[in-house]
Amino acid sequence: MLLQLILNSVISGSIYALVAIGFTVIYRTVKFFHFAHAVVFTSGAYFTFLFHKLFGFSIYFSIPFAIIFALLLGCLIEKSIYKPLRKKQASSMILLLSSLGIYILLQNLISMVFGDDTKSIRTGIVKEGINIFGARITPIQITIIITSIIITTLLLLFLKKTKIGKAMQAVANDAELANISGINSDRVILSAFAIGSGLAGLAGILVALDVDMTPTMGMNALMMGVVVVIIGGVNSIPGIVCGALLLGFAQNFGVWYISSQWKDAIAFGILILFLLFKPEGFFGKKMRKVSV
């Protein structure tokens, strides 16, 4: 049973990590709370549902296309709303409110088009999970874990090795300075939205394959994702992965030893502890003030 408990924790942690990494790629470049990320996450699942169940395309075709559509949705939001607002020198508060507006609008649009009930991409047949030393895991859950390992590694390489990745780091550190040194920050922000939204779409699809979808699924996922980002530290991908696992383990062991009412309380309890004692995140170092 301990193995099962560890597996349950790793599954939760992998999902948290996927959502958190997508969110942080965007957050670190634009520095405001992109609420609409939640609806991009949801859209991935619903695009897959649309292509696969309503249009009848194969699932292997529907998933990549749904990811592309989620990616485009993210870019569209940036291009049509955030960018014009940024040009008008809008504060983070205004951007945050506008993103909340987009979230509400699009979430209701999904409700209107697809209905509020649970939709699923999978077939109605439920099989027993694969038996690993008495613990059970389903193929889709294995996929979730493997995908989040691959995605994390790829993203780390991307940020470290490619030109646009390095430019994203630069904009994350100081947008103005990056601009002065010839980096087109608008383009960098757009690519951050593309990558982050694609990841969100992918995460949404994986979650929906496991536990189905509702129009409000994104907000719950985003809440935990944001807790993970704060625990892990905005600028550290390994930190976020550790934060996600910590949260997954703490919640599942909390349910095991205490009670399930405490699941969210544990998450936010950890959040408060980190904010109090380690606000710079898992691997973050204390910043020293530097005067130039």
Partner: peptide, 8 residues
């Protein structure tokens, strides 16, 4: 949506 630990 996650009841695995309760069910375990």
């Amino acid at each position: 949506t996650d009841f695995r630990t309760q069910l375990t």
